[in-house]
Simulated scan of single mutants.
Amino acid sequence: MVRVSNNVVGCLNLITLLLSIPIVAGGIWLTSRASTDCEKFLEKPVIFLGVFLLVVSLAGLVGAWCRISLLLWLYLVVMFLLIVVVFCFTIFAFVITNKGAGEVVSGRGYKEYRLGDYSNWLQKRVDAEKNWLKIRSCIQESKVCRRMEERNQTLNEFLRDDLSPLQSGCCKPPTACNFIYRSATVWDKPSGFESNISDCNSWQSDPAILCYDCQSCKAGVLANIKHDWKTIAVVNIIFLIILIAVYSVGCCAFRNNREENAYPRWKGHP
């Protein structure tokens, strides 16, 4: 009779094996149609994740149901390393997202963001030219600023609006610039304008420029990353509990395999 632990491990890995197929297919589909930096940035991680799940699930499935101890041992080693990686990443995510928050602006419904408020590690990653060019491309391709312009808001409506971090940081100039409002993404600089605020000098009403190279835009990106990473960290805690439970069941299945290999059924009892 096949042990319960072997059945549980086998069924769980059958599910992940089936899930890995559409993930790999999705990565291949992205590769075939990727024409932008944003799409190209996503394709390799998706394919890697799908292939990883496919290989690990196959090892766990065959090792549990066919009771091949070597495959199950390799499966458990990978699972242990995955548990360590997820645990370390969760702690890391909580640490680096501990700093940084939007600043309330008097008379505004939205907040504004400063790059210096976030962790140095995140600042360096987003401020690196190579990284920022890709991120900037993704923001432009998302058309977040164009959708903001299409609202055709009056100044009072705009000031009361609850803008997202990207909208606040990338699509409009900072409030301190005191530019003249024409529309959500069109602001006039006073004649002969000069400022010691770099973002005010970087701002252009050109839809291809706006404030995409502003420090406030990079801060808006980090505000999004902080929110997303905190959510991921919470999900990782749940995922970690599930991984530990599956790993424990896998250990039982491995022990069963070793016992059955050491005392084959055909020998019978003395």
Rank of each mutant, 00 (worst) to 15 (best):
Phe158His: 10
Arg146Trp: 09
Phe158Pro: 06
Tyr118Ser: 03
Gly169Ile: 00
Glu141Tyr: 11
Lys130Val: 11
Asn156Gln: 15
Tyr113Gln: 04
Gln153Arg: 14
Lys143Arg: 15
Asp162Tyr: 09
Leu159Arg: 13
Gln123Arg: 10
Lys124Ile: 07
Ser164Leu: 14
Val144Ala: 12
Leu122Glu: 03
Glu129Ser: 14
Leu122Asp: 02
Asn131Val: 04
Lys130Asn: 13
Trp132Asn: 10
Asn152Tyr: 12
Ser168Arg: 08
Lys134Gln: 12
Leu122Gly: 10
Cys138Val: 03
Arg114Thr: 05
Met148Tyr: 15
Leu155Val: 12
Glu112Ser: 09
Leu163Val: 11
Asp127Ile: 08
Glu157Trp: 07
Gln123Leu: 01
Arg136Lys: 14
Glu141Ile: 00
Ser142Cys: 02
Leu159Asn: 13
Lys134Tyr: 09
Arg151Phe: 11
Asp162Gln: 13
Gly116Thr: 04
Asn152Gln: 12
Glu141Phe: 06
Arg151Lys: 13
Glu149Pro: 12
Arg125Pro: 00
Leu155Met: 12
Ile139His: 05
Thr154Cys: 14
Leu163Ile: 05
Arg114His: 08
Glu129Phe: 02
Val126Asn: 05
Cys170Val: 06
Ala128Ile: 09
Lys134Thr: 14
Lys130Trp: 07
Glu149Asp: 15
Arg125Trp: 05
Arg160Ala: 12
Glu129Asp: 10
Arg114Ile: 03
Arg147Phe: 15
Leu122Arg: 03
Leu122Asn: 02
Ile139Pro: 08
Arg146Leu: 15
Glu129His: 07
Gly116Pro: 03
Leu163Asp: 07
Gly169Thr: 01
Leu115His: 01
Glu141Lys: 09
Leu166Asp: 13
Met148Gly: 07
Ser137Gln: 07
Ala128His: 12
Val126Thr: 05
Asn120Val: 04
Leu163Lys: 13
Arg160Thr: 05
Arg160Tyr: 03
Ser119Cys: 00
Phe158Trp: 15
Leu122Ser: 06
Arg125Leu: 14
Asn120Trp: 02
Arg160Pro: 02
Glu112Phe: 05
Thr154Tyr: 12
Asn131Phe: 09
Gly169Ala: 09
Tyr118Arg: 01
Leu159Ile: 06
Pro165Ser: 09
Ala128Gln: 14
Glu150Thr: 01
Gln123Tyr: 05
Glu157Cys: 13
Gln140Ser: 02
Arg151Gln: 09
Asn131Ala: 04
Asp162Leu: 12
Arg125Asp: 08
Arg114Glu: 08
Cys170His: 10
Asn156Ile: 10
Arg147Asp: 15
Thr154Asn: 15
Ile139Ala: 08
Glu150Met: 10
Arg160Leu: 08
Arg146Asn: 14
Leu159Cys: 02
Lys124Ala: 15
Cys170Arg: 04
Leu159Met: 11
Gly169Leu: 08
Asp162Met: 10
Gly169Val: 06
Leu155Lys: 15
Cys145Ser: 14
Trp132Leu: 02
Tyr113Cys: 02
Val126Asp: 04
Val126Phe: 04
Gln153Glu: 15
Trp132Lys: 08
Asn120Phe: 01
Arg151Ser: 06
Ile139Lys: 01
Val144Leu: 13
Gln153Ile: 01
Trp121Phe: 11
Leu163Cys: 08
Leu122Gln: 03
Ser142Ala: 11
Val126Gly: 01
Asn156Ala: 15
Arg125Gly: 05
Arg125Tyr: 03
Ser164Trp: 05
Arg136Asn: 08
Tyr113Trp: 10
Asn152Ile: 00
Cys138Trp: 03
Ile135Thr: 12
Lys143His: 12
Glu129Ala: 13
Ser119Glu: 05
Leu166Pro: 09
Glu112Gln: 11
Asn152Gly: 07
Arg114Trp: 00
Lys143Ser: 11
Leu163Ala: 09
Asp161Pro: 00
